[in-house]
Computed example of a mutant assay.
Amino acid sequence: MTGYLPHEHLPSYVGDDEANAASFDSEGWLKTGDLCYIDQDGFLFVVDRLKELIKYKAYQVAPAELELVLQSLPEIVDAAVMPYPHEEAGEIPMALVVRQPGSKVTEAQVMEHVAKQVTPYKKVRKVLFVDSIPRSPAGKILRRQLKDHMQSCIVSRL
């Protein structure tokens, strides 16, 4: 399920039919881009953003799910998952990981920890150890900054 808000409570794009068509469905609901589910008690849970999904082969992988799995490893202080370009798969899940001070956890150990807890297509296939994960004051991962940091790391290794 993706998130929608009723149109009558939101302004439309005046004079921009193309923007309106892309932003609102045929019933006038705003497409927020949030991935949600409703539990058996009727509670709505926002779990990720549609734009942030990793497209691995024919599958969609939610970074937030893998981040929770990574953060369950005691040797990891913080983690973020980003798409990494891959010739055959399109994108692969790559973990950016902040280790506990003094930890020697390896890339293989991190990938094994995730692989034991998720279906095969969701496995982390690359790990990059970093000093910190950029976050907003509210604690949200600043994915654009993280993407820029990843690019500089890749370029510096060439």
Rank of each mutant, 00 (worst) to 15 (best):
G15I: 03
G42L: 04
T119E: 15
L30T: 06
Q145C: 02
A89N: 05
L73P: 01
P63S: 00
E52F: 07
T32C: 14
L70K: 03
Q71M: 13
G3A: 06
L10M: 09
K31E: 04
E67A: 06
I141E: 04
L50M: 12
C153M: 15
L142M: 15
K51M: 02
I92W: 12
A89P: 01
S132M: 10
S72A: 15
L73W: 03
D25I: 14
V127N: 00
V110T: 08
R157F: 13
R125H: 10
L66G: 04
Q60I: 07
A89H: 09
W29S: 11
P137H: 11
V118Y: 08
V77E: 04
T106G: 01
H7W: 07
M150I: 08
D78H: 08
Q109H: 07
K147A: 12
M111Y: 00
L44I: 13
R144A: 03
K31N: 11
L44H: 06
P85W: 11
L142S: 07
H113W: 15
D17L: 08
E8R: 09
N20V: 11
V130N: 02
L68I: 10
V127S: 02
Q145M: 09
Y13V: 04
S23V: 12
A62C: 05
L53Q: 07
N20S: 02
D17E: 13
K122P: 02
L53R: 05
P85F: 09
A22E: 11
H9L: 14
V69C: 02
R135Y: 08
S132D: 13
S156P: 06
Q60C: 10
A62V: 04
T119W: 08
V114Y: 07
S72K: 09
S156H: 13
G90L: 05
K140Q: 14
K104W: 06
